[in-house]
């Protein structure tokens, strides 16, 4: 603990003098990631548009209200909401120079993310067993593409977060890992926002 604090402090100290040239570059990188998130937003927008257009075309297959099991979806939603909050707490610990807290909250976030993915995959497997595959109807093609793309983003985030935790364990809180934590937390909040719209447009409006 004492070691972690000393480490972080020495970092913020060695950081201060070189701040002029450094901050610009780091904030520029953060902005680059922000622009990636916006293009990702447009990707999801296209998938949402496709889903909305196709959601009535069930081709004699199951409809949304027959297919969706809300308890699982509600659990997924609250799990992802909480993980968005805990990734914020990770950033907060980092800003206080608390490496253990930072890694701890990242672990909690990753575990919540993993349970989200487990629930989602279970849901998908169940649907496929019920005969609702991606090829069954336009509605299900749109559904699996949209929700699956989001799930893929979360899975990718989990791999990335694990790699970052290893880096943090090795190097501690440096300007580079600091930027990476800020970026992954942005990414995680973004995925939560996308899920809120999946939850609203696909599930809630589907079962209504």
């Amino acid at each position: 603990m004492a070691h972690g604090n000393a480490h972080a402090q020495s970092n913020s100290h060695s950081h201060a003098p070189s701040h002029e040239g450094h901050v610009d570059l780091e904030s520029l990188r953060l902005m680059g990631f922000w622009i990636f998130l916006i293009t990702d937003c447009i990707l999801f927008g296209s998938l949402f548009a496709t889903y909305i257009v196709l959601h009535g075309n069930t081709a004699g297959g199951p409809t949304a209200s027959e297919l969706f099991h809300m308890p699982g979806v509600i659990a997924e939603t609250f799990i992802l909401l909480t993980s968005s909050f805990t990734s914020g707490l990770a950033v907060l610990s980092m800003n206080q120079g608390n490496r253990k807290g930072l890694i701890g909250w990242l672990v909690v976030t990753a575990l919540l993310g993993a349970s989200f993915i487990t629930l989602e995959v279970t849901e998908f497997v169940k649907m496929v067993h019920e005969g609702a595959t991606i090829g069954t109807s336009g509605f299900l093609s749109g559904f699996f593409t949209l929700v699956g793309t989001h799930g893929l983003h979360v899975s990718l985030g989990l791999v990335w977060m694990t790699a970052l935790m290893i880096q943090l364990g090795r190097h501690g809180i440096t300007p580079v890992t600091r930027r990476k934590v800020n970026i992954i937390s942005l990414y995680w909040h973004f995925l939560d926002v996308v899920w809120i719209f999946v939850f609203t447009i696909v599930y809630m409006l589907g079962v209504m």
Binding site: M31, W34, I35, I38, T39, C41, I42, G45, S46, F48, A49, T50, I52, V53
Partner: peptide, 22 residues
């Protein structure tokens, strides 16, 4: 506020795609 501007631009594109398609 480049981030905000980029976001607003992205949202306009998003609205056009989703609203237009629907």
């Amino acid at each position: 506020r480049w981030n905000l501007l980029a976001l607003i631009f992205g949202l306009i594109v998003l609205m056009t795609i989703v609203g237009g398609s629907v």
